[in-house]
């Protein structure tokens, strides 16, 4: 069997518990992503989403298991994987251009200054910030700061983009615009994206697959929702698609009840669930069977 582009194989993360012993955030987690896929992860706080992302980024280590990308196990951070931080992570003493150039010159260390700047300006133009190159982050609005973060991530032409709730700190209007832009950019460049979000609508609008994680500790990937919406979707039309509300209801049901009671759900007789291959469900599809057991 050919391996997927990104293959998370049985990873676990444990922390020393305050009263001795160890707390398991999650263990034996399996998940795969193909090249060019946009995957959103949804789950309550504390389920280890960010830990998974940090492991993918190489900022955190697994206690067990491994993540294999393109046939190679992850060993620390890499310029092939760009991270967009929730708190944008811009260096406040550098200008917009300085922040992006810093990333560019980190990737191509032998480039002359002029070439670095030209490349950085191109990335800044992609996110629509031309004219703000010489501003410091403190002079920018929240949405513009996040754009700079996106420009910085794009500028190094990564193979994978990792986003940790990139739009959660923004107002609804800005968030919508940025979602459109990110979706456009990722589709045009064929990016593989792993994104964490709390926003169900955001996940449905952006993702090809939505990973549902149960509550921690000992969080699991309960299901993977294959998004039935067409790849060509527009913000104004998505909610009119017949599958939109079934998907949305399915995810919200999961967040409200099933994420908490998933272990009890599994204990029901006849319920089959495999850690290594969490079920892929497509709510709203004609042949979609409802989950075998509904939580009460």
């Amino acid at each position: 069997m050919a391996r997927s582009y990104i293959s998370i194989e049985g990873i676990a993360r444990r922390f020393p518990a305050p009263e001795g012993g160890r707390t398991t955030i999650f263990e034996d987690l399996w998940f795969a992503m193909e090249r060019g896929e946009f995957v959103c992860v949804i789950g309550h706080s504390g389920c280890g989403k960010t830990t998974v992302l940090n492991i993918l980024a190489g900022l955190d280590e697994t206690s067990e298991g491994a993540v294999i990308i393109d046939g190679k196990a992850i060993e620390g951070p890499s310029l092939d994987r760009a991270v967009i931080f929730q708190s944008h992570g811009l260096l406040p003493w550098r200008t917009v251009l300085g922040n992006v150039s810093y990333a560019v010159s980190s990737k191509w260390r032998d480039w002359p200054k002029a070439r670095v700047e030209e490349h950085a300006r191109k990335a800044i133009a992609t996110v629509g910030l031309t004219g703000a190159e010489m501003k410091k982050p403190a002079q920018l609005s929240g949405g513009m700061k996040q754009r700079v973060g996106i420009a910085r991530a794009l500028s190094i032409e990564p193979k994978i983009m990792l986003m940790d709730e990139p739009f959660s700190a923004l107002d609804a209007l800005t968030r919508g615009t940025l979602q459109d832009e990110v979706r456009g950019i990722c589709r045009n460049t064929g990016q593989t994206v792993f994104m964490i979000t709390h926003d169900v609508d955001e996940a449905i609008y952006l993702a090809d697959k939505i990973v549902l994680m149960t509550n921690g500790p000992d969080a699991r990937i309960a299901e993977i929702v294959a998004n039935p919406l067409p790849a060509d979707r527009s913000r104004n039309e998505v909610h009119k698609h017949p599958a939109y509300y079934p998907v949305r209801n399915h995810i919200i049901d999961f967040l409200v009840a099933r994420s908490r009671s998933f272990t009890e759900e599994l204990a029901q007789p006849g319920r089959v669930w495999n850690r290594r291959a969490p079920p892929i469900v497509t709510p709203g599809a004609p042949d979609a069977a409802p989950p075998l057991v509904r939580a009460v």
Partner: peptide
């Protein structure tokens, strides 16, 4: 900021 530097190797 340190993580930014780390991800940029």
């Amino acid at each position: 900021w340190l993580n930014v530097a780390r991800t940029l190797e």
